[in-house]
Amino acid sequence: MENNQPIISVDHVSMRFNLSKEKHESLKEYFLALAKGRLQFDEFYALRDVSLKVMPGDFYGLIGLNGSGKSTLLKVISGVYKPSSGTCRVGGTIAPLIELGAGFDMDLTARENIYLNGTVLGFTPKYIDSKFEEIVEFSELRDFLDVPLKNYSSGMVARIAFAIATITKPDILIADEILSVGDFLFQQKCEARMQRLMSGGTTVLLVSHSIEQIERMCNKVAWIEKGRVKMDGPAAEVCAAYKQTTK
């Protein structure tokens, strides 16, 4: 019964941004512009009337060129953006891996950041305590635990971020090109862990520019172009069509 309910349902969502030509960040500028009657904005639709349904247990891929709106869609789903119109319903806990180092303070050490980021994701300190070893183990950064994060390479930050976000069994894991940063060994490790989460019932939403990776891992794919869903369906079909046009 539960399987018939989509876990994420995006319903006619549009996301509009005001691309102000001149950004009025000071009061004086604002009133000057207002007085001159030039307070107009260019409207830009990052998403137009997007509808998607993700079922529990799906490994859902999003493909599209740069600037097509994939990340915006992920941010709408994870609740960072509120859609300008339409609704987005999510039925479960989300572990977001959108961009690296969200919730990290670069001045703090890795150890401190594990706790800070863990609580950003809504874990209790006790829970983090119990999983601390596992996080350190997975990220393979034991020797650098008390080094401030600003001295880390981006790959090292990615390891920590991935390790923290996946210690729990979230209902939904959102991963935005996070895997592209680590070396290939770590990428394999992440894929393995994502597969394991999947078999435990987690729904994964993955954005990647590696079409091979999408084909290999996802069962469903949506192709987004200029803020609209151009095609969605089984991974093989959509990927084939996508590859046709980009050739």
Binding site: S78, V80, I94, P96, V120
Partner: peptide, 9 residues
């Protein structure tokens, strides 16, 4: 801002 743009809090 960096945090607010990435995760919901």
């Amino acid at each position: 801002a960096p945090l607010l743009r990435k995760v919901y809090i």
